[in-house]
């Protein structure tokens, strides 16, 4: 659940059986826990990471043939993140990220409508 108070440093944005996404208000970062691994993302990195995952067409990947199609490598220059996902993991990560994105958007609306000093 979302915590509106500014005091909570860590808020779990979204959680599934596979992992979770946490927002760290103090360090201004997002933390992804997935497959037993913890990764830290600056805001811009997180947005880019989500974009690259969204840009992958899962259906194409499923129907694709040949070696390597069942493994996807996600990497961004300028960040230390390098992920190797199987198709199965990709589905899990996609679900996780879209859930987190929805909560981020909801939080934005709450900030705009309820917490803002401008009404």
């Amino acid at each position: 659940m979302l915590i509106l108070s500014n005091k909570a440093a860590y808020v779990t944005l979204f959680q599934t059986e596979k992992g979770r996404v946490i927002q760290d208000d103090h360090a201004h970062q997002f933390i992804l826990e997935f497959g037993g691994k913890k990764s830290f993302f600056k805001v811009q990195e997180f947005l880019q990471f989500k974009k690259s995952i969204d840009n992958l067409n899962l259906q194409d990947l499923f129907l694709g043939e040949g070696p390597g199609v069942d493994i996807q490598i996600i990497h961004h220059t300028g960040s230390e993140h390098l992920f190797v996902f199987t198709l199965c993991e990709l589905i899990g990560i996609k679900e996780l990220l879209s859930g987190a994105a929805t909560m981020i958007e909801l939080n934005r609306i709450l900030n705009d409508r309820l917490l803002s000093i401008v009404f």
Binding site: L4, V11, D25, H28, Q29, V43, N107, R108
Partner: peptide, 10 residues
């Protein structure tokens, strides 16, 4: 909870 994305970009 802070709006981190808004703080980073408008």
């Amino acid at each position: 909870m802070k709006d981190l994305i808004r703080m980073k970009t408008s």
